[in-house]
Design a protein around this nucleic acid. Structure first.
Lengths: 347, 347
DNA sequence: TTGAAAGCGCTAACAA
DNA sequence: TTGTTAGCGCTTTCAA
């Protein structure tokens, strides 16, 4: 209660309080080595009444082991990333490993800086979003000598392990699903994020899929900032002003797609007859819209869980064991047709 | 490239590579003390070509300073918390301080555990959501000897500093705004979260406000799990089945309120004439709904920023300075009337 | 089952 | 401006 604030307690304080050597106190608190029940209880009680909290900084330095896993993601405002974190957290629950999150705002320089700061804590692994990194960042990842899992993307060359989906393929799949249903005058709306490589790849895969069938996108529009729902309304309005003949609108995420959906329903447009719609992500948040949006599941929690598991497995290996070739896990997203994409036959 | 993976580089490696003492290398890398330009450049180059990343664990142990701030929140799935984090991040940007996030899932035991783990890294401050903590948790916060800011709530007794809003008052304010507009048959829908003290206080303040005007809530319903939007639809449907005469529905968050709104618009209900609606939070995400929802701003990013600033100020104080009485900041949420709560006159 | 000594990689304090 | 010395609070290793 009135313990001097300045100096936190040390092992020595506990040792003195219970008359047991620091070493034995340490053993008790870590459940390591054989300690007699009697000593054990003495130590535990002293630690508890003093309110001792071990110093991991000293512990990690001495043991050369750090139970931290660096998790590096572009953003927290896009629900996709918190969901990945949830998957990671769940898998690490009950293990000694602890995720520590860094946010890059989609900026390569910031990614580099965050990575540097995290590596300076000598974590036992890195989980990092995306496969595109600056040379310096790749060098750091290579040189750290710890397991690295690049997540959420599968189009490119990972430094080490990988767990993600192919966004290019996701775009192509959506293109072919749309074409199969007979839509042909297609517009695209997405974020203006030159640094969101996954959104870009999805778009590329989508146009590629259309092109292969001899179809070109008729309209496209990109936005940045603002509420996605409101943007979806506005942009859909504007796009249909300019190109009233469109019969399908593909959005780069479910939130703007929802905005578009609400707008079109307001206008009394027949969906999916007159115009079909699709988004991307399968955001649970949005179930409960007047129509269920066609979308694709990006396997977010699975990816988080898989990445965490890869790290766990690698850390379970004995120090000098050969880890074998790095795990490369490509998950396959599935299309949800919902009520906004015609479905002539069961797919 | 082919450096043996096992041993990370140390200051000594850099020192040997450039023929400068470890101490001077350390000085250069921390920009501390006077070092000649020539030596400086030599060191910097050596560090860069080797790819040296300093070891903060050793550094923090030696200097007895840790640039980490523990941030403890109940959840990441509720957008409220990522928004608070954004405010915290922004304020710490450009300072040496780094937030580290822990998630409690609204469970007191988990809060205790997360707090213990974070304190074992000897952070320079704690930002923690809520004012309700177990005795053990309060004891740890007290004993840590570092600045503690409890955030998001102002109804209760903080251990140290505080930055939040009074949820009880927020509930009362909404009650009086609703009554002023002549609504009188009122239903409430919210999450079934006995451990979400802020939601509970809002509800208590709300009923208290009604009671003072001689009005009782006519219907109430609580849910747990599932998509909030979908729940809002369902629950609104069911509540109006049971109590068709309600003229106002107050929801504990904007997401279920949005579900209710969409449902009522589907049914062709006149809003806000026949039934008024209000939620809580001012989630920017939802701008773009067919009607703008009445809600209250919970000042999330401001709270995050304020908390971070309190920590910064406290850390800027000289070691032995008297910090004075702890900062207690109570922000005042404002009602947004939107289109779902009648407004007879400008407020 | 317990303890003593050495040292993890760095920085504070002081000396040159 | 640079270098030397002595720890920071733990854990590893080895001895008792």
């Amino acid at each position: 209660m009135t313990r001097p604030k300045q100096r936190p307690l040390t092992l020595r304080d506990v040792s003195e309080a219970c008359g047991v050597s620091e070493m034995t106190v340490s053993r008790v608190l870590r459940n390591r080595g054989d300690v007699s029940i009697k000593t054990r209880n003495k130590v535990l009680e002293a630690a508890k009444t003093l309110g001792y909290v071990p110093n991991q900084i000293a512990g990690s330095l001495a043991s050369q082991r750090v139970n931290l896993i660096a998790v590096i993601i572009p953003s927290l405002s896009n629900m996709v990333f918190p969901e990945v974190l949830t998957g990671i957290n769940k898998t690490f629950e009950g293990t000694p490993l602890q995720p520590v999150v860094g946010v890059t705002d989609y900026l390569p320089e910031k990614e580099e800086q965050v990575l540097y700061e995290m590596l300076s804590w000598r974590p036992s692994g890195v989980i990092i979003a995306g496969l595109e990194h600056s040379d310096a960042a790749r060098a750091m990842l290579q040189g750290a000598g710890i397991p690295v899992v690049e997540i959420m993307d599968a189009d490119g060359n990972p430094v080490d392990a990988m767990a993600g989906i192919s966004h290019r393929r996701a775009g192509r799949m959506m293109a072919s699903a749309i074409l199969k249903e007979g839509y042909s005058r297609i517009g695209f709306m997405g974020t203006k994020m030159p640094l969101d490589h996954r959104a870009r790849k999805r778009f590329e895969g989508f146009t590629e899929g259309l092109t292969k069938a001899g179809i070109e996108i008729e309209a496209r529009d990109f936005y940045s900032g603002g509420s996605a729902l409101a943007k979806g309304r506005e942009m859909t309005h504007e796009m249909l002003q300019r190109s009233p003949d469109l019969d399908f609108l593909y959005y780069s995420n479910d939130m703007i797609a929802a905005g578009g959906l609400l707008y079109l329903l307001d206008k009394g447009v027949d969906i999916p007859g007159q115009i079909g719609l699709a988004g991307f992500n399968g955001v649970e948040l949005l179930q409960g819209l007047p129509r269920q949006l066609a979308t694709m599941d990006a396997c977010r929690t699975e990816i988080g869980a898989a990445a965490a598991q890869i790290i766990l497995d690698r850390n379970a290996l004995p120090e000098d064991a050969d880890p074998g070739p790095p795990v490369r896990m490509t998950l396959t997203p599935k299309i949800t047709f919902g009520d906004t994409l015609r479905r002539s036959r069961r797919g």
